[in-house]
Amino acid sequence: MSTSVFAPRSGSRNKQRSNFELYGWLFMRVSGIILIFLVLGHLFIMNILDGGVQRINFAFVAGRWSSPFWQIWDLSMLWLALLHGGNGMRTIINDYAERDQTRFWLKMLLYVSTAFIIGLGTLVIFTFDASIG
């Protein structure tokens, strides 16, 4: 039985070398540090401060998104969290999905759904209208 592991530095897999995985690794650490502040701040305000989730309703959201500060906060959190989570999911799919076809389609599903959620969230923040209804 032949082995599927390439010999180190054999060059067989190094034809299209890129630093993508290195940048991905670095992105996880940089976005992680920023997300600690954005997400823990978000959780503290939404779940703990001043009555927590019990006080949240449409008017509360309208009040917050009238300020560019919270719009930028939420937009940064949306993009960073989904890209950080999406890259984490990509790593997990690469680790556990062994068949090439399965791995490919799981990743396609991941990319399409993540792009959809980022797009939807961005649209909602930019087109929010407090006077609807």
Binding site: V61, G121, V124, I132
Partner: peptide, 28 residues
């Protein structure tokens, strides 16, 4: 993985602010 799946749900529920205040208040 758990937090990532919650994020999907959370963006979808928040997106209801574009539907109507009543729809958002109901999901919240």
């Amino acid at each position: 993985v758990s937090v990532f799946f919650f994020l999907f749900v959370h963006v979808l529920d928040t997106a209801l602010v574009r539907v109507s205040p009543a729809a958002y208040d109901e999901i919240i």
